[in-house]
């Protein structure tokens, strides 16, 4: 480990990931945004990996430095749930830090992803969050309990999903567990509700 010369430039990172991941990498995009009077660039790299190679990509990142995971963001794109793992490499090198954003697409009929907590112990908070907010299943997660949502929040609803498992219908009644589980329909309008409609 750590035979890599730091800091790595954007081009070096590009070829490093392309070599390591082969065909499973796609949509690689490099960005350099100039900021301030001195035009010092902020460097970013984005790419998508297939689920099969996802663990490999995290292993590659772990070989550079002890990985710094900022957070995982996720969203519902219709047929798939997209997860983006936002890493930072080259920390400790002034001005050379690169944000590495790794995207994985999970099909809605199989929302599973392997855990990375064995490589990045600090990822546990964000993995637990993704489970409860997007309804994905993190395989081999050391602790799969809820973290942020209330115990009374319905088990089969996920706040960041835009399909029938989302909470569009229940967002007005989150304070009431029973009502939230049975959102009003046209046939059974809620008593006293809908005044502003």
């Amino acid at each position: 480990m750590n035979t890599i010369d730091l800091p790595m430039s954007l081009d070096e990172l590009e070829s490093y990931f392309k070599e390591g991941l082969g065909d499973s990498i796609s949509d690689l995009r490099k960005e350099e945004i100039k900021k301030g009077l001195n035009n010092r660039p902020v460097k970013l790299i984005w790419f998508t990996v297939s689920r099969g190679s996802f663990r490999k990509s995290i292993e590659l990142i772990s070989d550079i430095q002890i990985p710094h995971l900022s957070v995982t963001s996720g969203s519902d794109l219709g047929d798939v749930v997209e997860l983006i793992y936002h890493f930072a490499v080259n920390y400790g090198y002034p001005g050379d830090e690169v944000s590495v954003n790794i995207k994985v697409h999970l099909p809605k009929d199989d929302l599973t992803i392997p855990t990375i907590t064995d490589l990045v112990p600090g990822a546990i908070t964000t993995e637990r969050e993704k489970q409860e907010f997007l309804g994905i299943k993190v395989e081999n997660i050391p602790d799969s309990r809820r973290l942020w949502l209330d115990e009374g929040f319905p088990e089969d609803r996920y706040p960041w999903r835009w399909d029938e498992t989302g909470m569009e219908n229940m967002s007005r009644y989150v304070h009431d567990k029973e009502e939230a589980a049975n959102p009003p329909t046209e046939d059974t309008p809620r008593e006293g509700g809908g005044k502003d409609e």
């Binding site: 900021k35 301030g36 001195n38 902020v42 930072a88 920390y91 400790g92 090198y93 002034p94 830090e97």
Partner: peptide
């Protein structure tokens, strides 16, 4: 002793023009 500071590592706003250290 960890050298992590976004202001230095990946300067935003005007930090890229300023002189600062961890």
């Amino acid at each position: 002793g960890v050298k992590k500071d976004v202001r230095i590592d990946q300067p935003y706003a005007a930090y890229g023009d300023l002189d600062l250290d961890y």
